[in-house]
Simulated assay, not measured.
Amino acid sequence: MQDHEVRKIVAEVLAEQQRLHNANVDNETLRTISTILTSFGIEEEDRIELRADFQHLRRWRKASEQVSSYGLKAAVTILVSGIAGAIWLGIKTRLGQ
């Protein structure tokens, strides 16, 4: 065997070992996540419902943030309008004397 053939075989063996290791890590990760979710009372069959729940929570959060933003804008608008009205009333009163 020549040197480049040995290197090729070693590289193939190492690549296969890496693939097997990654597959084992993936399987262990999935099993761990499944165990954690099951300990929280979330069964694997409930994934669709869980996803829908998270989507609903996200919509609720975004709507809440939007209401908060609009509420702040409304408060600033009311404050500025009140100040502008008071200034206008003051000017009219001064000019009317």
Rank of each mutant, 00 (worst) to 15 (best):
V25M: 11
S68Q: 06
V13P: 04
Q55V: 01
L57D: 10
L57M: 05
I87E: 00
F54V: 10
A84I: 12
E43I: 02
Q2W: 15
L89F: 15
S34R: 14
S69A: 02
L72V: 12
A84G: 13
I9M: 14
I83C: 12
A74R: 07
E44M: 06
F54D: 07
R19H: 06
H4G: 07
A23C: 03
G71R: 00
W60M: 05
S39C: 06
N27H: 04
V76G: 15
Q18G: 01
E43D: 02
Q97F: 11
E5W: 00
T32M: 02
L30R: 15
D26I: 02
T32R: 09
M1G: 14
E12A: 07
R58E: 13
S81F: 09
E43V: 09
A75W: 09
H56F: 14
V13M: 06
A11I: 04
S39Y: 03
L30S: 07
I9H: 15
Q55K: 09
T77Y: 00
R31G: 08
E45A: 10
I83H: 05
I91Q: 06
M1D: 09
R47C: 12
L20A: 03
E45S: 09
A11F: 13
R61L: 06
H21T: 04
K62V: 09
D46N: 01
K73C: 05
I33D: 00
I87Q: 03
K92T: 06
L14I: 02
T77L: 11
T38D: 10
I36M: 05
H56Q: 14
Q55I: 01
I78K: 06
L95G: 14
R59T: 10
G85K: 06
A23Y: 08
A15E: 13
